[in-house]
Structure formats: C-alpha cells, structure tokens
C-alpha cells in the first residue's frame, strides 16, 4: 500500500499534516486580514458600530491626506535605515567574530543580548539615553570632551527617525548577526586558502570569498529586515508618538492612531491594506531582483 508514488495517500495525509496549522492560521490571521480588507470599504468607526459600504472612498481620503504622503516617505527611510543599521551591524559583527576561536562564543552570546529585550522596554531605556539634559549619550559626549557632538537626538526633526531607528536596530541586529554567523560557517575554508595563495589581502578575501559565500543568507536577512522594518512600531510609539510634528510618524503608528484615537476604523483598515500590499510588493520585488542576479 505505502509506495513511493502514493500520491493519493499523500494527499490524504498531507491534509492531516497541514490542516491544524491552516486552521489556526486561517482563524487568527488570515480571516482577520480579510476582514480588514472588507472594513477598508466601509465607514466603520468604533469596535461595534454599524458600518456602511463606501467603496473606495477611504482610499480616496487617504490619497488626499497630506500626512499619508509624509508617512510613506518616512516609513521608507525607516526601512532603509533598519536594513542598513541592523543588517550592517549584524554583518560586521558576524564577520569580526567569525575569525575568533576561543572568544567566539562569548562575543556571539554577548552581542545577541539586546535582542532579548522587548521593543517597548527598548523605547523606555533609549528615551532616557537620549534625554538632552540628563541623558547618558549627551552626558558621555561631555565627559569625553566631545560636547560639540551633542545633538537634539529626539528633538531635531532631521535626526529623530535616525535616533529611534538606532534604538530599534540595537535590539534587532542580534538575530541578523546570528544568521550571518551561521552563513559564514558554511563557507568552505579552502576557498580562503586558495585566495590567500593567490595573494589576496583581507579586503579582497572579504570581497571575493565572504560576500559571494553569504549570498543566500544575505537574501534571507534582507527580506527579514525589510519585513521587520515595515512593521516597526513599538519604539516610535513609546519614544516619540510620531513627533515632533509628525516627523517620526510611520505607517503602523498612523494606523493605530486612525483606529483608536481618530475612531476612523475604515480609513485605518484602508491604510492597513496599503501597508500589506507594500510589504508584499517589496518582498516579491526584492526576491525577483535577487533571482535576476543569478
């Protein structure tokens, strides 16, 4: 009965294998997501209010909302910063500790520690670090005689996204670092030896052996970082509430404000749809681009 080509048997048991996961996923993620799609075409306000069908009116209202344009731009900045800062720190530390032997595990563990702190707590801690009068950062700059580098980390409109992103990336880079460490372990050591025999220096080895060897993991890390970046919420929410004067407002924070503070559920849902569509488009586009490079 059980043969290698038992397609029918496979079909039956595959339902048993996949069913429970699909049921939970469907009920608690997919269905709510579809319901959000439905809400985006209504004028729903509160949790239990009557809602009328309004077609694409919510999307029209979003297009006319000046804040939305700004929010999209800032979300893009946030996204790029997250990939560069968190992904970059992950790569740099991974490469650095990969060539360590005895202290490798120590550094790997220590550098990962920020990742165990919840983002809301990260926000509380870093807001205090950035405090212009009593903060750790400006205090440290003063102590090292670098007073001229003191900046309005959270008050300067040109700087605020960067500052909060650093806090968020501090929490986020650990997992990317571990992924890169894992990727580096898979690179065949003989490639480095061959490169060395050819007279390649440290940089050339990095450029011609490490980077190509990390191709797979890099794709994965960037995809993950793009998704995480787009979902960025807690640090902004705790540290700036989107301020000063909307300069750190992101898609997610604006959605929550629309839904809970503005009581405009329909419009919030429409923006959710935009966010999900963007997430999908970015992920797909990035992977297409990666494939095209092969």
């Amino acid at each position: 009965m059980r043969t290698t080509t038992g397609t029918k048997a496979d079909a039956v048991s595959s339902i048993l294998f996949i069913g429970p996961a699909l049921l939970i996923y469907g009920l608690f993620t997919l269905f709510p997501a579809l319901d959000t799609l439905r809400l985006s075409a209504t004028d729903a306000t509160g949790l239990n209010s009557q809602a009328n069908f309004v077609g694409l009116a919510n999307f029209g209202a979003l297009a006319a909302d000046a804040t939305v344009g700004r929010v999209l731009l800032q979300t893009a900045q946030w996204l790029v910063l997250h990939v560069v800062l968190a992904g970059g720190a992950g790569l740099a530390f991974a490469v650095a500790i990969a060539s360590l032997a005895r202290t490798h595990v120590f550094f790997r563990t220590a550098f990962f520690l920020p990742h165990v702190v919840s983002l809301a707590v990260v926000g509380v801690i870093w807001a205090k670090i950035y405090d212009p009068y009593f903060g750790l950062l400006n205090g440290a700059l003063d102590a090292f005689g670098l007073g001229m580098l003191k900046l309005g980390w959270l008050s300067d409109p040109a700087l605020v996204i960067f500052s909060v992103n650093v806090a968020s990336s501090w929490q986020g880079f650990g997992i990317y670092m571990l992924l890169f460490v894992a990727g580096l372990q898979n690179i065949d050591n003989s490639l480095y030896e061959a490169a060395e025999i050819d007279g390649a220096g440290v940089w050339q080895r990095f450029r011609h052996v490490t980077i190509p060897g990390l191709r797979e993991v890099m794709t994965f890390v960037v995809s993950l970082a793009l998704i995480n970046g787009l979902k960025g919420f807690a640090t902004i929410w705790v540290m700036t509430q989107g301020g000063p004067f909307y300069r750190s407002e992101l898609l997610t924070t604006y959605i929550v404000k629309l839904a809970f503070q503005f009581q405009e559920q329909g419009r919030a849902a429409a923006l959710c749809v935009v966010l999900c569509a963007l997430a999908m488009a970015i992920t797909v586009a990035f992977n297409r681009w990666r494939e095209s490079l092969r």
Partner: peptide, 10 residues
Amino acid sequence: TVPIQAIVIP
C-alpha cells in the same frame, strides 16, 4: 507581511 496592528480589531 501582515503586521499585528493591521488585524487587531477583527
């Protein structure tokens, strides 16, 4: 790709 904020009410 679905952030939790997008589905919390449903």
